[in-house]
Design a protein around this nucleic acid. Sequence first.
DNA 1: AATGAATGAGTCTTCATTCAT
DNA 2: CATGAATGAAGACTCATTCAT
Lengths: 190, 190, 190, 190
Amino acid sequence: MARKRAFTEEELLDTAEQLIIEQGYSSFHLKKLAEHLASGARSTIYQYFANKEEIAAACMKRAMVRTVAKAEQVDEQEPLNALRDLLRMYMQEADLHAILGDVRKIDVSQSEKAAELVREVMGMHETLSDQLSRIFQQAQNEGVVRRDIPFVILASLFFQLINTPNVMQLPSEEWADYLFNIWYEGSGKK
Amino acid sequence: MARKRAFTEEELLDTAEQLIIEQGYSSFHLKKLAEHLASGARSTIYQYFANKEEIAAACMKRAMVRTVAKAEQVDEQEPLNALRDLLRMYMQEADLHAILGDVRKIDVSQSEKAAELVREVMGMHETLSDQLSRIFQQAQNEGVVRRDIPFVILASLFFQLINTPNVMQLPSEEWADYLFNIWYEGSGKK
Amino acid sequence: MARKRAFTEEELLDTAEQLIIEQGYSSFHLKKLAEHLASGARSTIYQYFANKEEIAAACMKRAMVRTVAKAEQVDEQEPLNALRDLLRMYMQEADLHAILGDVRKIDVSQSEKAAELVREVMGMHETLSDQLSRIFQQAQNEGVVRRDIPFVILASLFFQLINTPNVMQLPSEEWADYLFNIWYEGSGKK
Amino acid sequence: MARKRAFTEEELLDTAEQLIIEQGYSSFHLKKLAEHLASGARSTIYQYFANKEEIAAACMKRAMVRTVAKAEQVDEQEPLNALRDLLRMYMQEADLHAILGDVRKIDVSQSEKAAELVREVMGMHETLSDQLSRIFQQAQNEGVVRRDIPFVILASLFFQLINTPNVMQLPSEEWADYLFNIWYEGSGKK
DNA sequence: AATGAATGAGTCTTCATTCAT
DNA sequence: CATGAATGAAGACTCATTCAT
């Protein structure tokens, strides 16, 4: 008994995520968002979200939830296998990096809702970090990775692999495994 | 007899660079720039540059020129030594990464001058890449790095080392050497 | 060494005061304000004030300061004379009533400056009330006004005289004295 | 078979009146109105009224009609008794004052219906004024109120009594009689 | 030159009103 | 009839850029 929706909340967040990833949060404008939505006026957006900040935060939370859900399904029994699986997963959620860098830029002072969402994202980030640390520590205990390097650094380097441009155009999983090997074996000659 | 200069072009670019690095290009405003300049009015900036985009581009070019100059001084005879030296150098010019990520964000459509500057920055980036590739190829020829991996990827991974947060607070050079070792030997157990 | 000002801060506040008095704070818009200023764009206003709320608050404070200054010059020795003088004075600052009713409508949550100004206005209101109370109490002590009525009520009724439309078009002072007499003697036959 | 009514016209006007009295016409929004209605959507309001202005005007007319009806029942034989009764009545319809101050704020240029309603309200206001004048004139004729003051002024001062804040928390009728006495006898010592 | 001031284009947000189911 | 949804016309505010002294 009402008009047909111009776009779903889902579509809105998809579009927002795409824009934020491509151009960064600082240049994320509702005008642009509305234009990219194809149908629907700018003001319609306010039916779904109270303000720009909430959109960005909701968007980031959604990506984070998605990632955490996948991360939880990784079997942590065998550290190396776990790391390989995690890398594959992060490779698919490659934008997470960009997003995490932008969460702090959200002005949270005018919207308690946005503040809460940002807090949740931070919390989940913590969860992911903890998982990596846990696995790395176990790997060190089992002696399968170097022990002469603090695991934070190992983790940090490992996490950066995601940013490597896939110049060989390999399928995501193969690419992940390829990088994993280099990370593990090193770039020097054997 | 002209009035006392409010600020030199040099000072302006220094301040701009600092701002762009700290907060990213998208949130780089001339208002902020003027405030950080201590002396001089916002409108005075237009005596030196025609618009915001030119400032950003000039700023990035300057950083690039600086880097290229240093890179040229690296002795490329011994590939591994050359790489070590380059890493040390890049570590000092760590902001280059941030800057390079932002060049593309400059809206170049309204200012031919800015467009030209951006092109120059891109060109110099190319120069740096070529150098890295050259050294890596030589290293592969000499058999001091793995040959089963395309040198572009080796270079890409190598270049990412710069982003690793220096959690151990080591002095820049030591930190570079530390990472170099991990990159070379890998993270896996020996 | 700069362009000529489109309007002074003084002119701006004058215009704002007029608008707020005529149409109330709730319908006070910067667009309207700019239009009434004859010269100057809307955005120029922001050179002088940070936001709408500050303008309104500054405007009210100015009126209040003006009034308090006049009130302080009233000689309180003889209560009845003092009251007569005060009434004359309030008659000239007749808009004070309208303004006071609107101070509370100012949204103070986004601007500390506005909040402070509002606080100051309230404080000065207090000062004026205290003065009235003081004089009324003294008048009761000296037996020149009724003692069977709480002085707050006496003051309240007295203060309302200001709102009486001057249908006879008497000069302000005469009109004040005229009303003062009715207030004192009552409307009933002697 | 129609759906259940979301709200009656009566309920709508009740709520509108309450809002206009509490916060003034300038901050009267249909959004707020709909929220306060508990049941029914904002758009449903347009089944009953063509626009915001009509609602406000209808609301004010209703209050006016109510007041006029009560005023007509006052026995005008004895002027003083009539005045006392009128004051009691106005005290109960104390919001009338607020409403009358707001009629002029209604933008009547877009809706002929609203314009007509506003005209009616003004007309009834006239009626009430006439009644007051009539009674005052009679009172002057009978010599029960001062004759040295134009009856318009007497009426005006009388009407303002309604605004006096009831600090003593007396029941409405007692409060009316209390003020009536002061108005009649004056505030000066006997 | 340097700069205080002006300004218009652009963004966010709100709200009355209209649509279409 | 009722209403969920859409929307355009404001209004607040910011900022790059231009003016004129």
